[in-house]
């Protein structure tokens, strides 16, 4: 109540209201009070569109660069549009075609497997890393920065570096051969399954530092008294980690899970740089974004069909987002 008692008259009115009805004022009362205050001070304008005016710049950007392209994609997905050739309405033909296309299913499975493997790694490994670098020991700042370096490195540079590490005559294979661990080079980049695994390693490596920063922020909010109390009660470091750290950063874990799932579903660069334009030998390592690019780009690009696959990818992303949301709701309740 104090926050609306900005003037003497307002304060008096509140006091009067409080005498009559104990407890907080009802909605009608609040409206009346605000109205009086507004008239009195002349500061509060109640034109309904005032807040929209403030939102307008942001809204325009969202509508132009997010909403409009999205709606356009939905419409395109119902046409047989091509590059520089407006299409005619074909209903759900593109969706039917996608569902009957083996390549679509291959890309879908690759995307889902990619997400299922990458997400747990990106939820737990950065947490472990954050717990490590959170300790206040000399020189820890260097490690914090070092772990964050892959995040700011360009995806192309990262891809090229890993290509040199993983190729048949690259660093890893040379070491393996020198140690006589393998007789033939491991086909990290020339076998479709191994290529996906290699791309996953790169994604996880690049994401570690990024999500570590999220966890560092969350860990900063855990009261040290909890750890001290647990230590007095005889809890060891492992027990303290699972009984205090994990429950307190759980909301952050769900956020990281959702964010990393969305970015894993959108993976393209790692596969493109490691596996070439075809998406690995025979194109067997293609993910959904890779397929969308292949189908929609180029001068013979089928924009309509690519838009339909984009919408299907969007629905898949939505599933993972809703899942994350549900989990966090369940956690709150």
């Amino acid at each position: 109540m104090a926050q609306i008692a900005g003037t003497d008259r307002g304060a008096a009115t509140v006091a009067k209201g409080a005498d009559r009805v104990p407890g907080p004022p009802g909605a009608r009362e609040t409206r009346r009070l605000k109205k009086e205050l507004g008239q009195e001070s002349g500061l509060v304008h109640r034109r309904w569109w005032t807040p929209y005016l403030f939102l307008l710049p942001g809204l325009v950007l969202v509508v132009l660069f997010s909403l409009w392209p999205f709606i356009n994609t939905v419409i395109l997905s119902l046409t047989d549009a091509q590059i520089l050739r407006g299409g005619g309405f074909v209903g759900l033909d593109n969706y039917v075609r996608a569902l009957g296309d083996d390549t679509f299913w291959l890309a879908l499975v690759n995307s889902v497997v990619y997400t299922v493997v990458v997400v747990p790694c990106l939820v737990f490994l950065p947490l472990a890393l954050a717990v490590l670098v959170q300790k206040k020991i000399p020189g820890i700042g260097f490690f914090r920065s070092a772990f964050y370096t892959p995040v700011i490195a360009s995806a192309v540079v990262v891809g090229l570096m890993w290509q040199w590490i993983l190729r048949s005559d690259g660093l890893v294979n040379t070491v393996f051969e020198k140690l006589r661990l393998v007789s033939e080079p491991v086909p990290f980049l020339t076998d479709s399954t191994m290529l996906l695994v290699s791309a996953m390693i790169v994604t996880v490596w690049k994401g570690l530092g990024y999500y570590m920063v999220f966890y560092l922020a969350a860990l900063g909010n855990v009261p040290t008294s909890l750890y001290e109390a647990a230590a007095i009660d005889g809890a060891g470091p492992v027990r303290r980690f699972f009984s205090i750290t994990v429950p307190t950063v759980k909301p952050m874990m769900l956020l990281v899970g959702t964010l990393s799932a969305i970015s894993a579903l959108r993976v393209f660069t790692e596969i493109y740089i490691l596996g070439g334009e075809s998406g690995g030998p025979g194109g067997d390592s293609r993910t959904l974004p890779f397929l969308i690019r292949q189908v929609g780009l180029g001068f013979a690009g089928e924009t309509g069909y690519a838009a339909a696959i984009s919408i299907l990818l969007f629905l898949l992303t939505l599933v993972f987002s809703v899942l994350g949301h549900r989990l966090s709701k369940g956690d709150e309740s």
Binding site: V63, I71, I75, L76, R85, G86
Partner: peptide
């Protein structure tokens, strides 16, 4: 009005590119 404008401009992205 906004939705109608949006839809009509969105549709331009499809049909507006025109044929030959």
């Amino acid at each position: 009005a906004m939705a109608a404008t949006l839809l009509s401009t969105a549709a331009c992205g499809v049909g507006g590119s025109g044929n030959d």
